[in-house]
């Protein structure tokens, strides 16, 4: 195990891009965990005397419509966005792993019924699905997490199901079944641990798109309740001012791009390293 880990580490770190992006991501994680350490101002304090002021030495990223410091709002927004996206993906991946492995392992009618539901979810335009959930249960952070999570359940279910089916063919599982090992036990002890690399890769890629989903919902006015910032909401709210006060939407947009890009590159790196073909 430890030699395998070392091999993985060596391979992953061979690419300098992987190192840089991992560091960037770790930096943003720190920002998310300790926003009060980084933020120069209270992100909620309004100032009617200096609203929409361009970047300056006092406000590095300028101020928004209400005179709130954009840098500070971005810092808290990173926390909000990363929290929402990660919780949504945790929720989706747990649900998706359970659904996918059960479906893949049992096959037959169970698989058929589950997959028809998954197909139907896939065929549902995702933004409208999220809109329904938020409209039904209210715009709170918890409901936003559920709404984004539900979009990703079918994606995880399908991926996990695919690998579960191929793992099922393996000799050790066939023999475990023949000696009468319980299905639930096989799924937990044999199937799920063996799909970990697929799981890790799809976790990272979907995590990055979940950050973008939050942004899209923010653009449609379906974000977290104000005044708490998330990056997506900030970009969406500032969009009307792209011509008159571009910094309001440009900076949070850039930060989203940097975070998502670094996660994507780390994800690609992980995929390359974990892929047995390489």
């Amino acid at each position: 195990m430890s030699s395998e880990y070392r091999k993985f580490k060596r391979k992953f770190l061979k690419n300098p891009l992987n190192i840089i992006c991992s560091l960037i991501f770790i930096f943003f994680l720190l920002v998310a965990f300790f926003p009060s350490f980084f933020a120069p101002y209270n992100p909620l304090t309004m100032d009617p005397d200096s609203f929409m002021s361009p970047p300056s030495s006092q406000h590095w990223f300028g101020t928004d419509q209400f005179g709130r410091d954009i840098l500070s709002r971005i810092i808290y927004g990173v926390q909000g966005s990363l929290f929402i996206a990660s919780m949504a993906i945790v929720f989706a991946s747990i649900a998706g792993t359970i659904i996918g492995s059960v479906s893949g392992y049992f096959g037959g009618a169970v698989d058929n019924i589950i997959m028809r539901f998954i197909d139907a979810m896939f065929a549902f335009p995702s933004i409208i699905l999220a809109l329904f959930i938020i409209a039904l249960f209210g715009a709170t952070i918890r409901n936003l997490i559920i709404a984004i999570g539900i979009i990703y359940i079918p994606i995880f279910s399908r991926t996990i199901r695919g690998s579960a089916i191929s793992i099922k063919q393996n000799l050790y599982i066939v023999s475990a079944r023949s000696i009468g090992k319980k299905s639930s036990k096989i799924i937990l002890t044999d199937i799920i641990p063996n799909i970990s690399s697929i799981f890790i890769v799809s976790f990272t890629t979907n995590f990055s798109t979940a950050i973008l989903s939050e942004a899209s919902l923010g653009f449609l006015g379906l974000g977290v309740p104000p005044p708490y910032p998330t990056l997506g909401r900030m970009v969406g709210d500032g969009n009307n001012f792209l011509l008159s006060a571009p910094w309001i939407t440009l900076f949070p947009g850039l930060i989203i791009a940097v975070i998502v890009l670094s996660i994507n590159i780390v994800g690609d790196g992980l995929r390359d390293t974990l892929d047995p073909k390489n």
């Binding site: 891009l17 798109t209 973008l212 899209s216 970009v235 792209l242 890009l261």
Partner: peptide
């Protein structure tokens, strides 16, 4: 190429659109 390609995947689509 891979880096540039990932940029396309990394920004909110409405943001790129407005820009």
């Amino acid at each position: 190429i891979r880096f540039l390609g990932l940029i396309g995947l990394s920004a909110p689509v409405f943001w790129i659109g407005s820009l």
